[in-house]
Design a protein around this nucleic acid. Structure first.
Length: 204
DNA sequence: CCCAAGATTGGCT
DNA sequence: GCCAATCTTGGGA
C-alpha cells in the first residue's frame, strides 16, 4: 500500500472527503479503515473557518496535507485533514474508522471493548488513536501519521452532516456504504455515490 | 465584560 | 430521549 501524496489534499474538500473513504489511517501504527468523513470550507457557515482565521483554526489556513485538531465542547479532540485550494480554509473531519490494527491499545485508551464504540465518532476516534492538540498542524505524511491510499474503488454514500445547525442541507457527509462502523446511519434518502470518477455529490 | 452556543459523548429516565 | 461535563469563541452590552 502506498501513502497518499500531499497533492491528494490540494483539491476541494468534498472531493477529498469522498476519496478518503476506504483509505487507511494509522497513528503510531494504530488505526484502520476510514469509513466516514465530512467536508468543510471557508464559504460554509458551519465551518470553523467561515469567520476567518483565529488562534484555534490557524491550521485550516495553512498548507493542505496537515492535521487540524480542535477541542470540541471543551472535552473531546477532533481530527481533520486540511484540504482544498486557495483561498484555503478547508478541511475534512475524520468521523469514523473501522478498527484494524492495534485494537487492544484502542480498547485500553477508550475503556470499552465493543469494536463499534472504539472509533465510531470523531471524539472517540481521536481518543482511540491518541490524537490530541499536540498534533495540530502536523504533516500527514510524517510520523506518527500514515495515510495509505486505497487500491480499489469502494461504494460511497453521501448525506447531510451531523451535529451542526447551519448549512444542514449541504450533503457533505460521506460514508462507506453498508459499513457497520459508522457513527450513525445515513438516512434512507442517502444517495449511492461512485467515488473518484463518479458523479459529484449534489451541491446546495 | 458577560454569556450563550458549539463539527460530542456517556449516563440516566 | 434528555441532560451534564467543560472551555473556547464570537457577539452583544
Amino acid at each position: 500500500m502506498v501513502p497518499v501524496s500531499r497533492a491528494f489534499f490540494a483539491r476541494p474538500a468534498a472531493s477529498v472527503a469522498q476519496d478518503l473513504i476506504g483509505t487507511i489511517l494509522l497513528v503510531d501504527g494504530i488505526g484502520g479503515l476510514i469509513v466516514e468523513t465530512e467536508a468543510y470550507d471557508h464559504e460554509d457557515p458551519a465551518s470553523h473557518s467561515y469567520a476567518g482565521r483565529t488562534a484555534r483554526n490557524a491550521s485550516m489556513f495553512g498548507p493542505p496535507g496537515h492535521a487540524y485538531v480542535y477541542r470540541s465542547y471543551g472535552l473531546h479532540w477532533c481530527l481533520n485533514f486540511v484540504s482544498g485550494v486557495e483561498p484555503l480554509g478547508s478541511a475534512v473531519l475524520i468521523r469514523a474508522l473501522q478498527p484494524m490494527i492495534g485494537i487492544e491499545a484502542m480498547q485500553l485508551r477508550r475503556g470499552v471493548t465493543a469494536p463499534k464504540l472504539l472509533c465510531g465518532g470523531p471524539g472517540r476516534l481521536s481518543e482511540a488513536l491518541g490524537v490530541t492538540g499536540a498534533l495540530d498542524g502536523h504533516p500527514l505524511d510524517e510520523a506518527p501519521f500514515l495515510v495509505l491510499a486505497r487500491e480499489r474503488d469502494v461504494p460511497v454514500v453521501c448525506g447531510p452532516r451531523i451535529g451542526i445547525s447551519r448549512a444542514t442541507e449541504m450533503p457533505w457527509r460521506f460514508g462507506l456504504q453498508g459499513s457497520a462502523f459508522l457513527s450513525r446511519r445515513f438516512p434512507d434518502r442517502a444517495v449511492p455515490h461512485a467515488p473518484a470518477r463518479g458523479r459529484r455529490c449534489p451541491s446546495p
